[in-house]
Computed example of a mutant assay.
Amino acid sequence: MLGRGVDQILPHPGDPALREPYIRDARDYVELAEAANGPIPRPVDFEWPWGDALRVLDEAAPDARILNLETGVTRHGCFAPGKGVHYRMAPANLPALSAARPDVCVLANNHVMDFGRRGLDETLGALAAAGLRTAGAGRDIDTARLPAAVPLPGGHRVLVFALGMLSSGIPFGWAAAGDLGGVDFVPEPSLSAAAELVARVRQWKRPGDLAVVSLHWGSNWGHEIDRDTVGYARALIDGGVDLVYGHSSHHPRALEVHRGKLILYGCGDLIDDYEGITGYERYRDDLRPLYLATVRADSGRLEGLRIAVLRAERMRLRYAGDRDRAWLGTTLDRVSRPFGTRVEVAPDGALAVRTV
């Protein structure tokens, strides 16, 4: 979420005007962060928000870096009606996104169209001009449904399909349809909807490809996962999807390894401007997990999952301390145990996942 307050500390801040009930200037979020953890230099360099996450990524050297970009990239000033919160970052600040060298930016979420279809169109153009692949939104239904393809050694690919659900706050009117631009939208996690998506995955997937489904779903807070959501995710795995990448909650939710394949029900936030906002401290949303999954190319089975634990401080990601890592490990272990998954702190300080 590189928009709003984060955008204001970068070299080319956009219009800070907001239409939220209590905050009308995005710079107020910077002040909240400063009140919590100290002054933030302005402007910061483009790598600042990522902080220690860049070192984690460089050391892991993943074949594919996939993130959910939950903001418009636009200077368009027409606020989408009926929404209490609007996110945008200035296109000139896109180097702050490129700094992490993402292979796919998922756009099927409840903020990509905060400035309407004109804002979405500018977002798509800016990301394309920066050479960044996208999935989950487009200028018509066909492009919104196209998977992003990341080449792998041996001619194989990681295929990323991205969809957003009503439960995450995406309005019905944002759905792409015919020649109308928007997001790849599914109203609810039904088994019939899973079957439709599985059919699309099978049309694209070749032997040796890995299929990732990114889902923006569920509420912002809480560890509860309803039966329909679990059934939908498992149906995708049963149908040939290799990894389910869920997000929307501002803190991480349970993990599951179903038939040897990974389901992330909620990854939590990585970068945002929530630092200093009170009311949900019990969820420790200041702790920011970065997921490093090792998957077999021939079968899609999970070989290992390491979770690097970072902490937001002065709108920058820093390595979390021992007590913070232990707290998050204990919490994820507790909420994942009903799914047959255990989480523990590894000797190197990362969280490690094992099945029972």
Rank of each mutant, 00 (worst) to 15 (best):
D45R: 05
F46E: 13
E47D: 10
W48Y: 07
P49T: 04
W50L: 03
G51H: 01
G51T: 02
D52Q: 07
D52Y: 03
A53R: 02
A53P: 00
A53D: 01
L54A: 00
R55H: 08
V56W: 14
V56I: 11
A60Q: 10
A60F: 15
A61P: 00
A61S: 12
A61F: 02
P62K: 08
P62S: 07
D63C: 09
D63I: 05
D63K: 14
D63N: 14
D63H: 15
I66K: 03
L67S: 07
L67Y: 06
N68P: 04
N68Q: 09
N68H: 14
L69Q: 04
T71Q: 08
V73P: 02
T74C: 07
H76M: 10
H76D: 14
H76I: 09
G77F: 03
C78I: 15
F79W: 13
F79T: 08
P81H: 13
P81Q: 14
G82P: 05
G82M: 13
K83G: 08
K83W: 08
G84W: 13
V85S: 11
H86T: 02
H86M: 06
H86R: 15
Y87W: 13
R88V: 03
R88Y: 10
P91H: 14
P91G: 01
N93C: 04
N93S: 08
L94V: 15
P95I: 04
A96V: 03
L97E: 04
L97A: 04
L97G: 02
S98K: 12
A99Y: 12
A99E: 07
A99T: 05
R101H: 10
P102E: 14
P102G: 03
P102L: 13
P102W: 07
P102K: 13
D103E: 12
D103P: 12
V104H: 09
C105L: 09
C105K: 00
V106Y: 01
A108E: 12
A108G: 06
N109W: 01
N110W: 02
H111R: 05
V112R: 01
M113W: 06
F115G: 07
F115V: 05
